[in-house]
Amino acid sequence: MSDATRAASARVAAAAPRGPKWAMVIDLAKCVGCDTCTVSCKAENRTPPGVSYNVLVEEEVGAFPNVRRVRIPRPCMQCDNAPCVQVCPVGATFKMDNGIVAIDYDRCIGCRYCMAACPYGARSFDFGESYEDEMEGFDEVQAPEYGIARGRRERGSSPVGNVRKCHFCFHRLERGEEPACVETCVANARYFGDLNDPNSVVSQLVAGPRAFRLKEELGTEPRVWYLR
């Protein structure tokens, strides 16, 4: 192989997509507002009181008698140009190669700058509250978020005192599974897949005329799309 050919091959390899670029599509026409995504997410990630990675934002629009309710499920948008990453003073929030915006709990100092910067309100602070009174053993086991198994939930130990958010159930992705909210959606309103694969369902959906993203004018480049 000539030097020119070798150099050209290296450029092609460098430009080629490496690994998946995860994205989610939510069909608002299918969503029935049942909150299954919220409940399954809390169960999967064992989030404490005051911390919810998936919420259902509801709004009443129109004027009586022509009134209707609009429901918009809101996970973290996993923005490509994430304001939360830019403002973190210690680099605890960062963008992974697979497109997920992650939080290093061991580095996070709990300053909450990222919460103020997020235009989607997708972050929560873990004040150390617990469901132990309602659910015996809640503090004994934590979900292996970001693939890291942690011990007993207690004050002074991460993620207590950290900012937390949706991470597309990264620990499930590592096992070849879908995020919990996608798997349990009773209306099949959520789609999840690899944007690097042009034949994936999500790639085809985001290219269609129904697709849009929240607050696109801010330039955050979210990785969560919605279908009108």
Rank of each mutant, 00 (worst) to 15 (best):
S2E: 01
S2R: 14
T5E: 04
R6G: 01
R6C: 02
A7I: 13
A7R: 14
R11A: 12
V12Y: 07
A13K: 14
A13M: 04
A14S: 05
P17M: 12
P20V: 09
K21D: 01
K21M: 12
A23C: 11
A23R: 14
I26W: 00
L28I: 14
V32N: 11
G33M: 12
S40K: 15
K42H: 07
K42M: 06
E44P: 04
E44H: 12
N45A: 10
N45D: 06
T47D: 01
P48S: 05
P49G: 07
V51M: 02
S52C: 05
S52G: 08
Y53G: 13
Y53A: 06
Y53P: 03
V55C: 07
V57A: 07
E58V: 15
E58G: 08
E59M: 07
E59R: 14
V61C: 04
G62W: 12
F64G: 05
F64S: 10
R68M: 12
R68L: 13
R71M: 13
R74E: 03
P75K: 05
M77T: 08
D80Y: 03
N81H: 13
A82P: 08
C84Y: 00
C84N: 09
V87I: 15
V87L: 03
V90D: 05
A92C: 11
T93A: 08
K95F: 09
N98G: 04
N98V: 03
A102S: 12
A102Y: 03
D104E: 03
R107P: 05
Y113R: 14
C114R: 09
M115C: 08
M115S: 06
A116F: 10
A116C: 06
A117K: 09
G121K: 11
A122I: 10
R123T: 09
D126C: 12
D126F: 00
F127V: 14
F138E: 02
D139V: 14
V141F: 13
V141Y: 13
Q142F: 02
P144R: 06
P144T: 12
P144K: 06
E145I: 15
Y146D: 05
G151Q: 10
E154P: 10
G156R: 11
S157W: 00
S158G: 02
V160R: 07
H167A: 07
F168D: 02
F170H: 12
L173D: 00
E174K: 15
G176M: 05
E178S: 10
P179W: 00
A180F: 01
E183D: 01
A187M: 07
A189E: 00
F192W: 07
F192M: 03
G193Y: 00
L195Q: 11
N196A: 06
N196V: 13
P198G: 04
V201P: 09
V202T: 11
V202P: 01
L205S: 08
L205P: 09
V206C: 06
P209N: 08
R210I: 11
R210F: 09
K215D: 02
K215N: 14
G219Y: 02
T220N: 11
R223V: 05
V224N: 01
W225R: 13
R228F: 06
